[in-house]
Design a protein around this nucleic acid. Structure first.
Lengths: 163, 163
DNA sequence: TATTGTTATACTCTATAACTATA
DNA sequence: TATAGTTATAGAGTATAACAATA
């Protein structure tokens, strides 16, 4: 029914692995966003929270630079994380202009919960693959990410254009 | 130097294959967007153009529905494709309200060029993989896309929220 | 009266640019 | 004078709602 046979596969094949990756990546983001919606957080919040957890005590600008986002946007994100009681701003005693970022206790707990949700999402996503295939997929994706010089945990979409 | 050892790998691992996929997908999109920038088109244009090429003679609404985007946005996209001389609107003789979409000759040529650019982008992206691995990666990604019931050639980001 | 495509409006999001407080 | 963070402004992008033509 319908679906006229392509005259020329070569010509029709504008799409390839690149598109598939983009399509799947967007889908994965949206699925995760839905899963964490009850926490009141969005994926960028999670990336920020995680980064603060990994390396606490850095300034807002240091992290903003790493994520490629402007200071004003950073302020808004941290405001929200602080309003949720997940993060604390602490004045640097040596330079009272800077705010050092730390996880609040609730932030630690939230990270654990987010980790659980991420694992759930991953299990759902990779369900058609065998355990061996899952490992292999991750290994290949990691190799591509490395060859493209993507920074671990830094999503390119956070800062729109970065090159 | 720096990089304090994680107290607990379990707790730190908020990220996984889902994030990696999203990160790589966004990167892939941006790389492709840059590559096609000289044509004056963006990825959504390409998706639309391709869809029109595959199944010409459909109404704007039919395609808008498939892509999950509102009619008003569809108008803007088609306006642009038409301004580039790639697409033609033709009145349906049976129902003069609808516009049937067809490729202009320049549209066919553009698809061929876009196909070439997409292949270039893919080669660059998959360069750290062996030929066998590339095949295997695509096969696994396709299997995931199918299990998630994603429509071939329809990017979830086109219509923001769709569920 | 209902529907296709279009245009107008209103809203959200974001970057840029002032601003403040410290240095 | 310069810098970290904040607030204000202004612009881009988008959905929603009104609209015109046709059914």
């Amino acid at each position: 029914m319908a679906k006229p046979p392509p005259h020329d596969t070569e010509k029709r094949e504008v799409l390839g692995a690149g598109f598939l990756l983009s399509q799947l990546g967007a889908h994965s983001s949206m699925a995760f966003a839905q899963r964490i919606a009850p926490t009141g957080l969005t994926p960028p919040h999670v990336g920020l929270l995680r980064m603060i957890g990994i390396r606490p005590g850095r300034s807002q600008q240091a992290i903003a630079d790493q994520f490629g986002l402007p200071p004003s946007r950073m302020v808004a994100f941290i405001d929200e994380l602080e309003a949720h009681g997940l993060v604390e701003r602490r004045r640097d005693v040596n330079d009272r202009r800077v705010h050092l970022l730390h996880l609040a206790p609730a932030g630690e707990a939230m990270l654990a919960e987010l980790s659980r949700l991420a694992r759930e999402a991953e299990r759902e996503l990779l369900k058609p693959l065998s355990p061996a295939e899952r490992t292999q997929l991750k290994e290949m994706l990691n190799r591509i990410a490395e060859s493209q010089q993507l920074t671990e945990g830094v999503h390119p979409g956070y800062g729109k254009l970065r090159h």
